[in-house]
Design a protein around this nucleic acid. Sequence first.
DNA 1: TCTCCCATGTAATATGTTACATGATTGT
DNA 2: ACAATCATGTAACATATTACATGGGAGA
Lengths: 192, 192
Amino acid sequence: MTASSVSLRHLILGLLTQKPMSGYDIKRFLKSLSWLIGSPSFGSLYPALRSLLRDGLVVESGDPNQNKRARRIYRITEAGEGALRGWINQPVAPDASLKSFVMRLVLARCFPRAGLVAHLQQRRSQVTMHLATLEQVNRAADDKIEWGQHLALGYGVTLAAAELAWLDSTLNQLLQSLPAEVGQEERVFSES
Amino acid sequence: MTASSVSLRHLILGLLTQKPMSGYDIKRFLKSLSWLIGSPSFGSLYPALRSLLRDGLVVESGDPNQNKRARRIYRITEAGEGALRGWINQPVAPDASLKSFVMRLVLARCFPRAGLVAHLQQRRSQVTMHLATLEQVNRAADDKIEWGQHLALGYGVTLAAAELAWLDSTLNQLLQSLPAEVGQEERVFSES
DNA sequence: TCTCCCATGTAATATGTTACATGATTGT
DNA sequence: ACAATCATGTAACATATTACATGGGAGA
């Protein structure tokens, strides 16, 4: 329904930077986050893996199998890491949805530490704005708006507040560990 | 990416139960919720309205205009209300995403009061389960899992906790007003 | 053996985005 | 006059879901 902005392909690449996985593994992990972002169907997952393979962004790794129907383990290639890095460096839309934020979060390890901080800070300012909008819409109409709407808006306000709290706490932690190691642990994913 | 389970068409129908609106109006309202559920592009919104019109679920209302490019105000028809009612009564998937929950929330006024309570209670039990899953995944791997994952999972846990709190509070309010008026205010959308 | 879960895949179909085009209205 | 915003629409393209099909391995 909305511009994911992060495609399934990118998400897969990000997950594969952790360890080689099969399509089924990926599906299983994503299912644990389905509450937040939903999980793709096999009908989109497997074709996505195939296209990554075709483009050389992943390779089929080892798995000395003989059977036709066996686990296919995929591993990200250097080209894949490059593509991922390129995607990470491009800016996020100002009205990015919670879903696309979570997707980027999953790929957090691919960010240079400082980039992650910037990303969270940007998110913080966006959520602040959205929160203001929600409260304004909620007030502006007041009686005129149905209570169904009030419910949804109140729900949004609650979640936004919780997210802000989480962002602040996480940013604090991150900023504590950052200054000490600038120029040393700086890049997690820059070269190598 | 995931089975919305609630289509744009249903969402539109729900919004139109509040008051007749134009496509642009709908877009504007949805934009205020874009943080949670994203907002559809015009390229999907207008065709959806056309298809609803074609199926007789909405009609173009009044608006004595002469221009070709002018506001088109849509109003839901009885057939549309029927379709919406039919959709509301069908069960939600056990792994429904936050997005699809919010969508149903927006349509809350279309639910009979008791149905809404049931819906929220069901959601409560689902979120409880998801929360357990998240915490379990988070612990199960612990070291093995990258901190990027930890971030996403921690974020999920935070939001889930906030949602649970909201659900409890909302359910309390709803249950206070319900018992008194059972069989009287019972249906908001059942007949008439 | 039978069933359940693992595991992959494809084709038909639905739905969505992107990029474009048109034109009215309002404020400066 | 001009820019910005309101307002609708379409065609090409990308992506997703659904429903199906295949087959291996584990345990009752």
